[in-house]
């Protein structure tokens, strides 16, 4: 009898302690992230004009319908998708390659790790300003090409496709260091025995890479994929500072169009609806990625 009471006390004490560990994070998260998101979600069903203290009118799904049928948001989503489709695999492939190369070096590992991480820690604002000067019609790049090849300079930032290309290059450039760092960590965790066994069986480095390395870091690749996709959809600063959606909103990204609606047109309801619609889209993509990886 006494033992049972003691056990119950112990279990209660355990629950209390676990709750103590659990609660601060949950409370914090709920107050500063979850609650604002719920508020934003509710906002998306109203015609909420920023600043107006008068009542906003409930409009139901009107904002969502507008988001889906609006040409500009469609273009923005497409642009952001293309950007993601280029930059995410780009960062993964290049990051992985560089990680593998660095791992094979015996010296200068740290030197390269730091060098490749430089773009990651440089602020987007500085990066955008610098690259805008490089890609302007009479910027550095055109100057090099023009003076060397005597060809008509390309207006990089003035058409949809070339702007997307430029932004993608910058996106990959800035992100390689991050994925590289993640992959270096993952690579060092692959047990060496696997390679030694393969060596005995007469395998070479390239076979090793595809049959041992890749499968071992599969989960890391998936994780990086999801994180980079979310990051790609959150691209704002470079687009805003380099093209700001011009010309004619053809180079809008989801976030720049969201920002314009929220702060220039004060149409917060529409903006909120857009962010949740895109959020749904990203979730679907992420789920597909998960399932694909589970099967492969």
């Amino acid at each position: 009898m006494l033992k049972k009471i003691a056990k119950k006390r112990k279990i209660k004490k355990e629950y209390w302690q676990v709750t103590l560990l659990f609660l601060p994070g949950v409370i914090f998260f709920s107050l500063f992230t979850l609650y604002p998101i719920v508020k934003l979600f509710i906002m998306s069903f109203y015609e909420y004009k920023i600043g107006a203290l008068k009542e906003s009118t409930f409009v139901g799904l009107h904002n969502y319908i507008q988001v889906i049928s609006d040409e500009i948001s469609q273009a923005a989503v497409v642009n952001t998708l293309i950007y993601a489709l280029i930059t995410v695999p780009g960062q993964i492939v290049l990051g992985l390659l560089i990680a593998v190369f660095i791992n094979k070096l015996s010296k200068a590992k740290v030197f390269f790790r730091v060098l490749y991480y430089f773009p990651v820690i440089t602020s987007w604002v500085i990066v955008s300003v610098l690259f805008r000067y490089i890609f302007q019609n009479e910027g550095y790049l055109n100057y090099l090409i023009f003076s060397m090849l005597e060809v008509e300079p390309v207006h990089w930032l003035e058409t949809r496709m070339s702007s997307l290309a430029v932004l993608s290059i910058i996106g990959i450039w800035k992100g390689i260091g991050w994925s590289m760092t993640v992959f270096i960590a993952a690579l060092t965790a692959v047990p060496l025995e696997l390679y030694e066994v393969a060596e005995v069986d007469g395998s070479n480095s390239i076979k090793n890479f595809f049959y041992i390395t890749l499968p071992s870091i599969r989960n890391t690749i998936l994780f990086t994929f999801v994180m980079l996709t979310i990051g790609a959809f959150n691209t704002f600063t470079p687009v805003k500072l380099m093209t700001d959606g011009k010309p004619l909103h053809q180079t809008e990204f989801v976030l720049t169009w969201m920002y314009k609606n929220a702060f220039e047109f004060r149409n917060m309801g529409y903006s909120a609806a857009l962010s949740f619609t895109v959020g749904l889209l990203i979730s679907i993509i992420a789920i597909i990625q998960f399932n694909y990886f589970k099967k492969a």
Binding site: K39, L40, N234, A262, M268, G279, I282, S283
Partner: peptide, 12 residues
């Protein structure tokens, strides 16, 4: 929740 951009949450 990481999917919702921080820009949007500024007002709440």
């Amino acid at each position: 929740t990481m999917i919702i951009p921080g820009l949007e949450l500024i007002i709440p």
